[in-house]
Amino acid sequence: MRTALPRTPAAAPRDCDPPMHRLEMRMPEGLPFAAGTFDSIGPMSRAAFPHRHTFYEIVHVTRGTGTHVVDLARWELRPPHLGLILPGQLHHWEDARGLDGHVVLFTGDFLLDHPGDRDLLRRLGENPWLTLDGPTHARTGLLMAELVEEYGHGADGFATVLRSLLHVLLVRTARLRGPGADGPGASGPPPGRPAAVAESFARLLARTGTDGRPVRAYAELLGVTPGYLTEAVRAATGRTPGTLLREARTREAQRLLARTELSVRQIAARTGFSDPAYFCRFFRRETGTSPGDFRKHHDRRAPSIEGGPPPA
């Protein structure tokens, strides 16, 4: 595994855009996941130039000096830290010296066993840089080391173990409050009604995002117009409610295809589609493959994760 710049014209950044890194998997049984030290992940794990990812990155910094920059927020390194970089965020390491620790990389596709982890990641992204106390640092270090060891051995069932360990890491990190926060963004999203509307939409989406209701139905539930909801969600996430709804339905369909024996017709109904043929067209448009092919080849592909979320 390594992180890499896109090699195809379709994935290359536009002129004046920062580079977009992807996960490049080389194992025949490769998963959209990697874990290791800064050294083993490669030089791009310490990239000093602004760039974006198509994947999530969790860093446990145990040593080093300098500054970590995410979008417009800057954090001076005073290890130990635990940090999260979300897909699409602009980040780099500035004047970093002696940077050491562990790095975990994964895409949204890796979260099929724990779909609720996406909501955890979204909430953790509101406070993405933590300074850890001694006991928390020790527990986090042990968990990160387990992830690295399990990934390196690749024994039978390692994908399930990795997903479970990652879930534990996210849940434990979500419990950290107050004194664990340090630097810009520690108090969460900016106050104001648009932020509150976006947060309420996210909670509704986590509960009902696969039942097929349109954006206007969410706007009615929240007591705002569809246009106001779109602007609030776009301001908070950089994306539209429609995009997030499509992604929620796609993720649930992927989970059901990969983890259950339900028929395509049943999965279509479970994800809010009355017409299985339309569901198949939707799934192919969103994922680039048919439901049948996804079920047949899941976890046996060697993905090179490129591009970003589906267009709004």
Rank of each mutant, 00 (worst) to 15 (best):
I58Q: 07
H60Y: 15
H60M: 10
G66K: 14
T67Y: 03
R74N: 07
W75K: 09
E76W: 06
P80K: 04
H81S: 09
G83L: 12
I85M: 05
H91G: 01
E94H: 14
D95R: 13
D95W: 08
V104P: 08
L105E: 04
G108H: 13
F110C: 08
L111R: 08
D113M: 09
D113K: 10
D113L: 14
H114N: 00
P115F: 01
P115C: 03
D119A: 11
L120Y: 02
L120A: 15
G125K: 15
E126N: 15
N127Q: 15
D133E: 08
D133A: 10
G134T: 13
P135W: 02
P135I: 03
P135H: 02
T136M: 08
H137F: 06
H137L: 01
L142H: 07
L143K: 00
M144N: 04
Y151E: 06
G152E: 13
F158D: 02
R172L: 15
T173D: 07
L176V: 08
G178W: 12
G180M: 11
D182A: 12
G183Q: 09
G185V: 09
G188K: 12
P189C: 15
P191A: 04
P191C: 03
R193N: 01
R193D: 00
A195L: 06
V197S: 00
